[in-house]
Nucleic acid binder design. Structure first.
Length: 314
DNA sequence: AAGATTTGACCGTC
DNA sequence: GACGGTCAAATCTT
């Protein structure tokens, strides 16, 4: 049995705002932490944890923005509808009559449907590890590339139907760096308990309150590069009147912008967040929707460049 | 033995 | 037709 995503555009907007507020807050704390490594900002989270929270906020925001009303998830949270590329083989079998006439079942290598509608984004880092279990299913020499490209899919593809995939390729100029392209979100439930997302949920819509099996959105671990959230984060935004606290902690101009934030135009928001002193810029880009999210508060030792690419979406 | 990786073949897109 | 993405048998690892 499948469950339709019930969110309206309005609630999606609230979700976007909430996630961006979270990301902004974590980025601000990270900024203070980096500027004042000893004193800190009253945050008990490490820089890495704050960075992970920022990444998570990006991911969720992107997810909300790019999700259509026809996105469908099963009761386990697995994505099974609309843009999903589930059951590629069955779909492909109906599509390629030509091949079925000329090949046997045993000789079906290469039969697939290229997932042009899947959400993709890229990340550049020194490691390919992202706390997810991947299974390599291919490697290919790429034209004009010194290093081959490796193809991975979620190790839970078959037992949970998770459609997340990634492609990893070393960068010629920096062989110690990896350019990772993520394709699709994790819809599997990882063995690690998904962290709970309770920070702003009581004052805004409660879509992300829990990331358990009842949730209709991918849980925290479903996002490809999210790490665990320190439970302490729950204490940072008490359930009572969270929105006001947020408002108080934000630059009034930013808050005003956020209130007027239009769905699908988050570039307005994050251009204000960007720092002139940034050594590393995180960017989320949607060429088709003029979406570009830049985050420039990270020093160079966070040698990770995150780039979201929605070329194939919408 | 089971799971993961390698690798050549196949197929869709450009 | 070239290139890139995927499949699946063979091989390797645990």
């Amino acid at each position: 049995m499948s469950i339709l995503f019930p969110e309206s555009v309005l609630s999606n907007r609230q979700r976007v705002i909430r996630e961006l507020l979270q990301g902004h807050d974590c980025a601000t704390k990270l900024k203070f932490l980096l500027q004042n490594p000893i004193g800190s900002y009253g945050s008990t989270l490490s820089a890495e944890e704050l960075l992970s929270n920022v990444e998570r906020s990006f991911t969720k925001t992107i997810y909300v923005v790019t999700s259509s009303d026809t996105e469908v998830f099963d009761e386990n949270g697995s994505h099974v509808g609309a843009n999903s590329c589930n059951d590629l083989r069955s779909e492909d079998s109906t599509k390629s009559k030509k091949r079925s006439l000329t090949t046997t079942i045993k000789d079906r290598r290469g039969s697939y449907k290229r997932r042009r509608t899947a959400q993709t984004w890229t990340k550049i880092s020194e490691t390919i590890d992202d706390n997810h279990a991947w299974r390599k299913y291919g490697q290919k020499e790429i034209l004009n590339s010194k290093f081959p490209r490796s193809y991975f899919r979620c190790s839970r593809k078959y037992d949970q139907g998770c459609q997340a995939m990634k492609q990893v390729q070393r960068i010629e100029e920096k062989p110690y760096m990896y350019h990772t392209t993520y394709i699709g979100f994790h819809t599997c439930k990882d063995t690690l308990e998904a962290p709970q997302m309770v920070t702003y949920s009581d004052t805004l819509d409660s879509f992300l309150v829990n990331s358990n099996s009842d949730s209709k959105v991918p849980n925290e671990k479903d996002t490809p590069f999210c790490s665990q959230i320190d439970p302490i984060i729950k204490q940072e935004y008490p359930k009572e009147d969270t929105s006001n606290d947020l408002k108080d902690n934000l630059d009034p101009t930013l808050w005003s912008d956020l209130k007027d934030l239009e769905l699908y135009k988050p570039a307005i928001l994050l251009s204000k967040v960007q720092s002139d002193n940034a050594d590393t810029v995180y960017s989320c880009t949607d060429d088709s929707q003029s979406l570009r999210l830049d985050f420039g508060v990270f020093p160079s030792h966070f040698s990770t460049d995150f780039h979201f690419d929605e070329n194939h979406l919408l």
